[in-house]
Design a protein around this nucleic acid. Structure first.
Length: 158
DNA sequence: ATTCTAACA
DNA sequence: TGTTAGGA
């Protein structure tokens, strides 16, 4: 089961989700010409292909970046301003994402309820956040002995 | 079939 | 920025 879980996580690893220039262009309504130009301007990045072929590869993160630049462009900003705004916004999002993932030690099952292992509370106890059945209900917290917390926690983020 | 760079009726 | 040539 652990192996299967690992395989699933690997399969859905966002880093495996990459696009070529034609795909990204269609997805974002930004021309391939623009994408190459934006890259030359340093607004976006692309990877080299491993197989040595001369073709760009874009990550999901770059897809998001392109989408944001496109949005600011359509809103009326110049390309340079749109690029700057997109970069700043993505930096903030990344910071928040890191802040959150740092606190997540994995998913767990507590009292038959889905829960998030939030890590050590003190020397002997671990803080668990119990996810409510309905999203109108409040999140509840519970302290578990470290051993029990470890036992009910099913996986840990990469 | 798709992408590359460089250049412009 | 679009489009095209000519090659990979």
């Amino acid at each position: 089961m652990a192996k299967f879980t690992e395989e699933v996580r690997e399969f859905f690893d966002i880093r495996r989700l990459v696009f070529r220039i034609g795909e990204l262009a269609a997805m974002t309504d930004v021309s391939a010409r623009q994408l190459r130009y934006w890259e030359k301007k340093g607004l976006i990045a692309s990877e080299e292909r491993e197989d040595g072929q001369q073709a760009r590869v874009y990550t999901f993160k770059t897809f998001v970046r392109v989408s944001m630049i496109k949005y600011y462009l359509d809103t009326g900003y110049t390309l340079a301003a749109a690029g700057k705004l997109a970069a700043e916004r993505q930096d903030r999002v990344q910071y928040i994402h890191r802040f959150i993932t740092r606190g997540m030690r994995g998913m767990a099952q507590v009292d038959g309820q889905m829960a998030i292992n939030l890590g050590p509370f003190d020397e002997t106890k671990t803080l668990m956040a119990l996810i409510p059945e309905a999203d109108t209900d409040a999140v509840h917290y519970k302290l578990l002995p470290n051993e029990e917390a470890q036992r009910v926690t099913q996986n840990t983020p990469a």
